[in-house]
Design a protein around this nucleic acid. Structure first.
Length: 542
RNA sequence: GGGCUCGUGGCCUAGUAUGGAUAAGGCACCGUCCUUCUAAGUCGGUGAUCGUGGGUCCAAAUCCCACCGAGCCCGCCA
């Protein structure tokens, strides 16, 4: 799929001609060489193996081959690696060059119930989902994102009823809707009639009462707009929204239930599927549909237009997804490739987050505080920057920091949100990356005319070249494992190699200026490329 | 109780898929470097029986078993 050159394969092929080695015997990212061949199985004859390989392997890109312990390390000429990078950028405008796949992918992420503002727990879903979307797109599979709007079922009916009961006549706002929603749940325990009202509304809804559906959709829209606005602050744009109610309104849920009729079992009027020894209910006693049924319909819908479907889900959905997957493949002949990407819950130092108890940090709060902190630091460090620049930088820093701090952690790890970490702009952080980019831009802006020189690459230049050269490997594995954190780790590695280069290799006015400017141009391009995958907003000045 | 996931210096994380060279970064702490391209940076130092105990192997953070601890799930909620 990728069109970049691969020395590893070439070296391996050559060695295979004389010794029986497999792909697992050779590593690309060793600390001791550019490629490392493990020769434990030739321990008794390693000198011989080494000299034979060394004399046989006559490649113009190999600078050196060394025997160290039970390893043979291959060193690639930096100039060769850099040519690969530079040629690709000059020819295709990017490195690595990828070609567009004909298949299409759909990443469903966020899909938060529109019953309140989005908080730092939910946003992990959006950040991971959006990054994966960008990564897959970059890799060459056309993709888009989708938000499944839950505008049916008890929760959103409660939201609607809360407004009717407690805020009737008021203009709908996120605040009074949330208040009504919380009141419904707290009063429900004392007042059984509320449950009944909800049930009646649900039945009307499922019968296709267009006026009610439209009212509820309107209610959900108000909250959804605030969620969308929060997402946009982080550069997260959802391509399409699919409203759950449409599947009910146009009879698709009912149609799917018909399709499944042979598999369905009854308990009274309620219907369920038996998966293993578990009963998965799809309709209630009163005939109304359950989330599982609607989600099945939604997935069949997704498969109509997409070859690859990816769901980004909280770990609490693991069982749901497992059951869903079972039904899709065993009863419904699901035609697309499907992957489920789970992420661990985000907790606060004070414990679990709960919208109803009110101990949440909303994305808007987080964003605001991060902007403030950033402004404070910029005013300290760059007192000469005009207000507009401070604003621009602090917004970019806030958006990038929030995203990076969350995406850099492996999704299946639990995460504790800490203000001290969220507001730290040093070390493994987005500003650390942004700062390196700004430095590179600053040097490039001063570049004059310089002549080519023939000197070899020093170790700092070589490390930077290698870090750039390896970008496709990280990109590939982040796609293979659907892990955006791999790109985050790569960026930190790339930036560290740049920082060492920057400190040790003066560019402007140096006799190596021409060569180093070329390195910086490539670095700049790869920084832009990889930052974009994570939604890090680079600026020429920071 | 059953199922899934996580456990790596004081704190946070990478490495675990494919076992291999002194376990790699960051935060915090101590010290270094701005008359050279942005010090949100650099370099050095302190600090790890890789949850515990067994097993497999020439070799285990990585594979297997057991146990301990944390999270999530086990609704005619979503």
């Amino acid at each position: 799929m990728l069109l970049f050159d691969d020395y590893k394969k070439d070296i391996l092929e050559e060695i295979k001609k004389i010794y029986s080695v497999s792909e697992n015997d050779i590593d690309i990212n060793g600390d001791y060489g550019d490629f490392t061949l493990k020769i434990f199985k030739f321990q008794n004859e390693k000198e011989e193996v080494y000299s034979k390989i060394k004399s046989t392997l006559n490649k113009d890109y190999i600078e050196n081959i060394e025997l160290q312990g039970n390893y043979i390390n291959f060193f690639i000429k930096p100039g060769k690696m850099f040519n690969v990078v530079e040629n690709s950028i000059e020819t295709f405008g990017m490195y690595p060059n990828t070609f567009q796949d004909t298949s299409k992918a759909l990443i469903e992420h966020t899909s938060s119930n529109p019953t309140g503002p989005i908080h730092v727990g939910r946003i992990r879903n959006s950040i991971i989902g959006d990054s994966i979307y960008r990564i897959i797109n970059r890799f060459g599979t056309r993709s888009c994102t989708q938000y499944f709007v839950n505008d049916s079922g008890k929760q959103v009916i409660s939201l609607y009823l809360g407004h009717v009961k407690y805020h009737k006549g008021e203009q709908m706002t996120v605040e009074n809707l949330l208040d009504g929603y919380q009141k419904i749940y707290s009063n429900m325990e004392k007042d059984q009639s509320i449950k009944k009202e909800i049930q009646e509304l649900d039945e009307r809804y499922e019968r296709g009462d267009r006026e009610l559906i439209s009212d509820i959709q309107k209610t959900a829209s108000i909250v959804l707009e605030s969620i969308t606005a929060s997402l946009e602050k982080l550069g997260i744009h959802i391509s399409t929204y699919v409203w759950e109610s449409n599947f009910i309104l146009y009879g698709e849920v009912a149609a799917l239930m018909d399709q499944l009729s042979e598999e369905l079992k009854s308990e009274g009027n309620a219907k369920y599927l038996e998966i293993g020894d578990k009963k998965i209910f799809v309709t209630r006693q009163d005939g109304t549909s359950l989330y599982f049924a609607r989600d099945l319909v939604y997935h069949m819908f997704k498969s109509q237009n997409f070859d690859w479907v990816i769901d980004v889900l909280g770990e609490d959905h693991k069982d749901h997804a497992k059951n869903l997957d079972y039904v899709l493949h065993n009863y419904l002949d699901f035609p697309s490739k499907i992957d489920y990407l789970f992420y661990g819950f985000v907790s606060l130092e004070s414990g679990k987050m709960s919208t109803r108890k009110g101990n949440i940090i909303t994305v808007n709060d987080l964003y605001e505080k991060t902007v403030e902190e950033s402004e404070k630091i910029i005013r300290e460090k760059r007192p000469d920057y005009p207000e507009e620049t401070v604003n621009q930088i602090s917004n970019a820093v806030a958006s990038s920091s929030i995203r990076f701090n969350i995406v850099k952690i492996n999704a299946n790890k639990p995460l504790t949100f800490r203000w001290s970490e969220a507001l730290n702009f040093e070390g493994d952080s987005a500003p650390f990356i942004m700062y390196a980019y700004a430095r590179a831009c600053s040097v490039l802006s001063r570049a004059g005319n310089s002549r080519e020189s023939n000197s070899k690459y020093n170790e700092y230049e070589k490390n930077l070249i290698k870090a750039m050269y390896l970008y496709p490997y990280y990109l590939q594995s982040s796609v293979d494992f659907l892990r955006a954190d791999i790109i985050a780790g790569y960026m930190l590695y790339l930036v560290k190699s740049f920082n060492e280069f920057y400190l040790n290799c003066p560019v402007i006015g140096n006799e190596e200026e021409y060569k180093r400017i070329r390195l910086l141009k490539a670095f700049k391009r790869i920084m832009e490329d990889s930052s974009d995958l994570l939604g890090i907003r680079l600026l020429e000045k920071i």
